[in-house]
Amino acid sequence: MSAGAGAARTAEIAARVEAFVRETVAPYEKDPRRDHHGAPTDALVAELKGKARDAGVLTPHILPDGGHLTQRETALVLRMTGLSPLGPLACNTGAPDEGNMYLLGKVGSDDIRRRFLQPMIEGRARSAFFMTEPASEGGAGSDPSMMKTSARLDGNHWVVNGRKAFITGAAGAQIGIVMAKADEGACMFLVDLPDPAIRIERVPNTIDSSMPGGHAVVAIDNLRIPADQMLGRAGEGFQYAQVRLSPARLSHCMRWLGACIRANEIATDYANRRMAFGKPLIDHEGVGFMLAENLIDLKQAELMIDWCADVLDTGALGTAESSMAKVAVSEALMRIADRCVQVMGGTGVTDDTIVEQIFREIRAFRIYDGPTEVHKWSLAKKIKRDWKAARA
């Protein structure tokens, strides 16, 4: 397909997704079907996926022939799904499913793609990625080398034991990707859920509320996994995690950029309608300047995402580039969400509009897939390595 034809195809997909999210999904933001943590119930998500399927926008970044849009093309489509916090759930582009689908599509065997990937693409199953471990036990968090969950070979099965924390969507998931450490090194396994050996201990209340199943603390007790459900070979787990890492970081940026575009639209409408001290809020310099700064940050975030997407589309891992994008975009979007609340005053901190939720979700996004400080530290290490290499 020519570049022009590819761009036209992507623009057409994005336009259909945008119309669907704005016209069909957004009205569901007031739907009361939420769990006690505030997240949409699986019944609500299933209804939305059904509507997306009917509209032809379910899993829109994966083409009918199984091909995947480029990262640059994905950026436009996922931005449109993010216009509502419910959009990624409806269109099947949300975390962790989107990153898990990308990983399995890249490195899964034919059998793994048939058994685990296809149900996710079709929106029939959601998944969880079991890597992070409890900080209180010195387990893996931003430093995956600290992983304590163990895996040992027993005949034609692997036996996994350990505890995991902040496992997004574990409650109610049908598919799990479990990371553990064997003598050979890190390993990655595919498992069917629920499994009695994987026990959800608790789902803590968190500041965000857009992801079904929350962020669970999980105990894994003598989980037996058939050897053919290992992704690749023993010791290759971190290698496969790297395949998933940069695109997953960037897709968070794509979706939440869409959310902040929507929040800025709402704040802009408010500022032009609300009168104070004899004129619309927009005519007060303090308010007008905040909205002007939002436009600048939105455009810079968009360009940073597109730049990193172009790097990934060359086939490079883009580790440093995705760190830079994650920091720049998450911090810019936090500023935007905060200004939107400020412009709207008391209304901005109520659930009368979606702005309040977007603010909460963006605050959590600054931690997802590595806090800003970890990415800066990683980049600083690269700066030092590059400096030494240039003088060697």
Score class of each variant (00 low, 15 high):
32 P>Q: 03
368 Y>T: 00
346 G>R: 13
121 I>A: 03
188 M>Y: 02
131 M>F: 15
171 A>R: 00
2 S>L: 07
43 A>T: 00
243 V>P: 07
302 E>H: 15
381 K>D: 10
80 M>K: 15
345 G>C: 11
237 G>E: 08
258 G>R: 07
83 L>C: 09
319 T>G: 08
269 D>S: 15
205 N>Q: 12
321 E>A: 09
49 K>T: 00
295 L>Y: 06
13 I>K: 08
261 I>L: 11
28 Y>T: 04
152 R>M: 09
23 E>I: 03
348 G>T: 11
164 K>I: 07
95 A>Y: 08
189 F>H: 00
310 D>V: 05
266 I>C: 06
366 R>T: 12
330 S>V: 03
109 S>P: 03
247 P>T: 15
55 A>C: 12
70 T>K: 05
370 G>R: 04
160 V>K: 01
301 A>T: 02
69 L>N: 05
385 R>K: 11
64 P>H: 13
182 A>N: 04
11 A>W: 10
90 A>K: 02
178 V>M: 00
284 H>K: 08
261 I>G: 05
152 R>T: 12
355 V>L: 09
225 I>Q: 03
270 Y>M: 01
339 R>G: 08
146 M>I: 01
88 P>L: 08
277 F>A: 13
225 I>A: 00
392 A>M: 05
5 A>W: 08
254 M>H: 06
303 L>H: 15
205 N>S: 14
202 R>C: 02
373 E>R: 04
187 C>Y: 09
377 W>G: 12
55 A>S: 13
128 A>K: 01
169 G>Q: 09
17 V>P: 10
314 T>G: 08
246 S>K: 04
33 R>W: 01
287 V>W: 04
162 G>A: 07
254 M>S: 14
223 L>P: 10
321 E>H: 14
196 P>C: 04
170 A>F: 13
49 K>L: 01
125 A>S: 02
308 C>H: 09
385 R>H: 11
194 P>G: 00
155 G>K: 11
125 A>C: 00
347 T>L: 13
70 T>N: 01
93 T>E: 10
1 M>P: 08
295 L>P: 04
47 E>R: 05
86 L>P: 02
83 L>I: 13
124 R>G: 08
28 Y>Q: 01
155 G>T: 13
304 M>F: 02
11 A>L: 15
97 D>M: 03
103 L>G: 09
195 D>C: 02
156 N>T: 14
